[in-house]
Simulated scan of single mutants.
Amino acid sequence: MNTVTRKLVAEFLGTALLVTVVVGSGIAAEQLSPGQTGLQLLENSTATALGLAVLILVFGPISGAHFNPVVSVADWFLGRRRGTGLRAIELAGYIPAQVAGGLLGAALANAMFDLGVIQISRHDRLTAGHLLGEVVATAGLLAVIFALARSGRAALSAAAVGAYIGAAYWFTSSTSFANPAVTVGRIFSDTFAGIAPGSVPGYIAAQVLGAALGLTAVTWLYPDSAATADAVTVPHERTGNLPTSS
């Protein structure tokens, strides 16, 4: 199996398992703590933060553990002139793999809890506050990832990214989706973790805006960020080469 294929499989599986963690822990929280929204959020956010950190450790050395289209686009954009970061052919595969993984992850979580494998969420999340929350959450996520790479601390990304997402569940009104692939996957869970289809376009637009703001901040604070684009989220294999290091 060539390097590009292995990267795409890693992104597919990693995103699928991430959505399984998000949706599955949301279903479990709803069943274990009915009517206790704060406790449900604590259970969901704790599982997500820990699960994300583990998935970055497992899949990061292969694909960088992006699991997120806006991270992949930012990585390609930042490194395109320096020959670092994702190549265009990889980007063209990463995004479909991530979205497909998100869909599988939601279906898998539903099946594990004996729910309908394919559901459509009725959880409307579209308010101005929620959209602002997604801008903030995504900008912060991009800033954390790229700042760690630029400062030679990408090895800390598993812990830092997991901790950031866990915290952002609580300090953003949207509970920090911050990921278009995860957002699309969560359409198919009519549970605590779901999102109604009508809310999705606004969320994705807010995530794109947040990613642009976060990347702008990082490139201003760290002017030579492009040099370390291939260490996002963590140092990983480059196509046709041995694994890179930070």
Rank of each mutant, 00 (worst) to 15 (best):
L131H: 04
V9T: 13
T5M: 13
Q119H: 13
S245I: 13
A149P: 00
H66S: 04
P69Q: 06
G214I: 00
T37V: 14
A167E: 08
I165S: 03
S225T: 14
P201L: 05
T239K: 02
A74H: 01
A53Q: 02
V144A: 06
L52E: 12
V54Q: 04
L55E: 11
A143M: 06
A149K: 00
A181Y: 12
G116Y: 01
F59A: 07
T5N: 08
G93P: 11
G102M: 10
T127Q: 03
L50F: 14
L126H: 06
A10M: 13
W220F: 11
A88C: 04
S157W: 01
G14L: 05
W170Y: 13
D224Y: 08
G210L: 06
K7L: 06
L50C: 03
G24T: 09
N179L: 10
G133R: 09
D114G: 06
G38N: 13
V234T: 14
T48H: 03
R6M: 14
D230Q: 12
V58L: 12
L18R: 10
R153V: 04
L104M: 15
E90V: 03
F192Y: 15
L132F: 12
A109I: 04
G210D: 01
R81E: 15
S246V: 15
A109K: 11
L215F: 01
A97Y: 08
H236L: 06
